[in-house]
């Protein structure tokens, strides 16, 4: 089954009263359990497309269906859909609230969902990404870049998403830390029924990680590549 179906989609950004179209007539399909790659130089529209799939930019036209349900343009994600699509951001220094302890950042969404046994879930999450549990009462600035990105991955996974979006998850990290994070993502993909979409400007990372990838250029799809 296709988790995601994108047909003839164009994406624009609101600039004052004008709309600036940055992605033109893109078609994609992503299967369940697949790691799908979006490659291209900066400004090619790959991140804009990802933000639409994350439900963060409602200014798009065309047809998108996610988990078999058609999406409506102009609407933000709510409820179940919001929970099932999660994202890991590029810069681990900017994606965790600087004045909140990790416990609060991680537990707040679970409390809002009314879940029980939050502490167990958090310690399970820490174990999964290989972080020491006693870090949970620290602030983000007390962690290294790699540790923060692990926390961002826990945060996304705690909501049990079906689709995990990765926006250049390793480009702000050291090469040696990148290897650790990529290994972790591969382990998680194998152990959970997780579909991933990964954006990167580094073709080597996409080659290593993805089952299926497209290269974007100036807002259009340039090449499509299957790895298996």
């Amino acid at each position: 089954m296709n988790q995601l179906e994108v047909n003839n989609v164009s994406v624009s950004h609101a600039q004052g009263l004008q709309r600036n179209t940055v992605v033109h007539n893109v078609d994609l399909s992503v299967q369940a359990g697949e790691c799908f790659g979006l490659v291209g130089p900066s400004g090619c529209g790959k991140s804009s497309l990802l933000w639409v799939l994350a439900g963060l930019n409602p200014y798009w036209e065309g047809d998108i269906s996610l988990f078999g349900q058609p999406l409506e343009s102009g609407k933000v994600f709510t409820g179940e859909l919001r929970r099932r699509v999660q994202m890991v951001f590029q810069d681990p220094y900017a994606s965790l609230h600087p004045k909140h302890r990790l416990r609060r950042t991680l537990a707040e969404p679970l409390k809002l969902l009314g879940l029980q046994d939050i502490d167990d879930r958090l310690s399970e999450g820490f174990k999964q990404v290989g972080l020491a549990e006693n870090m949970i009462d620290r602030y983000p600035h007390q962690l290294s870049g790699g540790q923060r990105q692990r926390v961002a991955i826990i945060r996304a996974l705690l909501l049990e998403p079906k689709l995990l979006l990765l926006d250049e998850p390793t480009s702000a990290l050291d090469m040696s830390v990148q290897a650790e994070i990529l290994n972790l993502l591969n382990d998680l993909k194998a152990s959970r029924d997780l579909t991933m979409i990964m954006v990167s400007h580094d073709p080597d990372v996409i080659d290593y990680m993805c089952d299926h990838a497209v290269t974007m250029k100036a807002g259009r799809i340039d090449q499509e590549k299957y790895y298996r």
Binding site: R82, R83, A94, S95, L96, E108, P109, L112, L113, R155
Partner: peptide, 17 residues
């Protein structure tokens, strides 16, 4: 537009919270 607020929104935190 910071990433951490976007991330909080994606996690379902909204409004007065």
């Amino acid at each position: 537009r910071s990433d951490y607020l976007t991330a909080a929104k994606m996690q379902g935190v909204s409004g007065w919270r």
